[in-house]
Amino acid sequence: MRFELARIFLLERKQSDVFERRAADGSKLNREQWLRGVFSQEIDFIHRKSERRFVPDQSRPKGEQRIVARIGRKTLSHENDPDDHLREITREQWRACLVIIDPTSHDDGQKVAIETSSIVGSGFGNFESLITTINGRSPPEPFVIELHSITDQTTFWEYIERHKGKITSITLEVVMPNMFGGSSSFEEDAKRLRDNEKARRIKETIENEDGLEPDTERMRDAVSYATRGGGKVKAKAKGTTPYDSTKDKKYIDADVNDESKDLNQKTEAAMAAFNKDKNDIESEIEG
């Protein structure tokens, strides 16, 4: 099974609502508490004009901190009943893709692994529609969710190096920082815009038809932030195809037999792949 990796960013709403979701004692929920509350319930939503259902799996192993869930689509199966002269019958059938959510705040936290299954269409697209439904609730939730794919920044710098002197524009679209805890100049500038101007997103384009020189510390910080799931990056060079980070998404693969009927085995394999990716990221950070 293959899973697409994405990052969840939570942006606090400017004004709270008297009916918004809160803790049992009436206090405000932190980001992790809110994510656990939201994704612990079944949610019906629409994706491409078709009904979908998000269902959390409450049977996860004891002590497991990640949220395991599935997004399902109902279909009608046309069959012939052997007990009724092979007459045609129609019955409901559900197909689903697996979703694993890490709601915790750490260097590689608030990450989602979404099965790239054609059973329900694009797994990422389905999850995007789920997020849209949550963001559009009334009364509004205390946070707005921003979802971005995690991509590979090395391909961006390979593009820059390959077309050195011919880069005419670079566009960054990022959500305001609230979880990576970085202290780069780019993140500090973004935090000031978030805190002072109350900005939620930044879209920044730099251009020079005679050629940019983007290999700077600030640009490296910005691209690193975006490709870790903070947004997306685009670049244009003379005489060649533009670069788009959303076309270079990061995936993990779970070692499982696609024909296996053992759902627990599939889930365990997916969790192991998700955990391996987390450990790999932490090793990179420590190194």
Rank of each mutant, 00 (worst) to 15 (best):
I206T: 10
E284M: 02
N196T: 10
F3T: 02
E4N: 04
R53W: 02
S245P: 11
R2H: 06
F124N: 06
H47L: 03
R13K: 14
H47C: 06
S122M: 13
S16F: 06
S77E: 15
I89C: 11
T90N: 08
K203E: 12
V18L: 11
I67V: 05
Q15H: 05
R52E: 07
Y225A: 03
Q15W: 05
K198Y: 04
V174K: 00
R200S: 09
K198F: 07
D84P: 04
A269K: 10
K166C: 05
H85F: 14
T171H: 01
D277W: 15
T171C: 07
G229F: 01
D215Q: 05
V175A: 02
K234D: 00
E128N: 13
E20L: 04
G26S: 11
S122P: 15
T267M: 07
F127C: 10
E209H: 05
Y225K: 03
D244A: 00
R31M: 15
P56W: 05
E115Y: 08
Q41M: 06
D215E: 12
V99P: 02
E12G: 03
S149G: 15
P177H: 02
D83V: 00
G125I: 01
G109P: 04
N275V: 03
V223S: 11
W34S: 09
G123S: 14
G230N: 06
K49H: 14
G136I: 03
V223Y: 04
R95C: 06
A226W: 10
K238A: 09
R201V: 03
D210Q: 10
A222T: 05
G230Q: 03
V68Y: 03
E12D: 12
I281L: 05
D108V: 05
H78A: 09
E92C: 05
K276V: 03
V99L: 08
A270I: 11
N264K: 14
R21Q: 06
K278Y: 14
D84S: 07
H163P: 00
R218T: 08
K261E: 13
